[in-house]
Design a protein around this nucleic acid. Structure first.
Lengths: 213, 213
DNA sequence: CAGCTTAGTGTTGTCGATACACCTTTGCAA
DNA sequence: TTGCAAAGGTGTATCGACAACACTAAGCTG
């Protein structure tokens, strides 16, 4: 109506080898062609904002089945050289087990970048990523979102690594395990995982809180 | 660009006589003329989202100098019968001391309603208010936002009343005062307030954390 | 000055968070 | 076969945050 465009952008995190990583695409078209940016694009006629974020993410990077929640909306005039654009940013969490990426649509490439070594970014996407990190850290303290950053079965050491890397500090193994057990949101599967030449670790999964009865 | 309009809406709370209240306007024009709704309106060319929310609130209700922060963005297709509209909702907090309201612009009237006795609302504004209450309760636990619901000087009893009404449960006076003192975000002014025929109460204000030095 | 109304104050028990060190299980190589 | 390297797994003591709980103080009114 007032010549305003609405887009969504997704800040998708995973925990890589040794650091928190964010998913970026290389823009195939102007503006900012050749620059790295968050996956996202224009809201289409019949779809919800949530759907738009998931669709654009899948189109440009091939990632599906990613946890997504709304993050913040950015609409400063001048943030897009094409004209007035309001973007609804989403926070996404992907398991670190390396679902393959598949750049397509407006993306020339798609890659994970360590959050402490980001390239130059298009638009105000650096601000949006900073906002995402802040939210991720904050929410980790009171919500079990870290589970979205792991495959369906995982060891306690892996889970602790996720917390440690996001909060950027070392955690005590015994205290960590005690907390997790008290909250009771995960449960042991019977299975174990062997990691090379050391003692195997118990695998855990998210506990479903006694449906039915 | 894609025939999408962007608006802002403000969910402004205050603590009234005996309950949490939200500010509504009576819509002067279709759609939903005569219905109650949140104050808000279309984003204009050069302004930020924050500015738009403050401007629309001031235009329609006369309230200025209200604390505002972004809440959530609603964009489901069908939420506005005129066509596709995405609204960025804001959470607002006003002091309960009764700055007078002044309905104008698209508002035929402006009034405070108890959140437990809301009229029928336009659009999806009931959902937006529910979202605002949830955020207010959640944030109260870890951020000193209750101070925005009081005048610059206030008594501890008043502050406790604010917390109690928002959380909807009784709080222990001694424990409450201990917590507040420990957090150290407010300080005593020298002044006292007389409330009729009883002992006067000490007035407090927000402590500025030692600027300068 | 008696009585009403609101302001203001401390102690105790419980629970969650932190700090901290050793034994166990496996694979591999000497 | 043994011993060594590498990661898994476990318990206790201390401290600070939070909940429960009852009386005295100051001012006004009749």
């Amino acid at each position: 109506m007032h010549d305003i465009a609405v887009t969504t952008d997704a800040v998708v995190f995973r925990v890589g080898n040794a650091a928190l990583e964010v998913l970026l695409i290389e823009r195939a078209h102007p503006p900012f062609a050749g620059h790295w940016a968050l996956p996202g694009g224009f809201l289409e006629a019949g779809e919800t904002l949530d759907t738009c974020a998931a669709r654009e993410l899948a189109e440009e990077t091939g990632l599906a089945n990613v946890y997504l929640e709304q993050l913040y909306t950015f609409g400063d005039p001048g943030r897009d050289p094409r004209g007035r654009t309001v973007t609804v940013a989403y926070l996404g969490l992907a398991a670190g087990d390396g679902e393959p990426l598949d750049a397509a649509s407006d993306a020339a490439a798609a890659r994970w970048f360590r959050v402490d070594a980001l390239p130059a970014l298009a638009f105000d996407h650096d601000r949006i990523i900073a906002c995402g990190i802040e939210r991720l850290r904050g929410k980790l303290r009171y919500a079990p979102i870290a589970l979205h950053l792991l495959p369906p079965q995982f060891t306690l050491t892996e889970l602790q690594r996720v917390y440690g890397l996001i909060l950027d500090r070392e955690l005590d193994k015994r205290n960590f395990r005690k907390q997790i057990r008290n909250h009771g949101i995960i449960e042991a599967t019977g299975r174990q995982q062997r990691n090379g030449s050391s003692r195997p670790a118990m695998l855990y999964r998210v506990a479903v809180p006694a449906t039915g009865r």
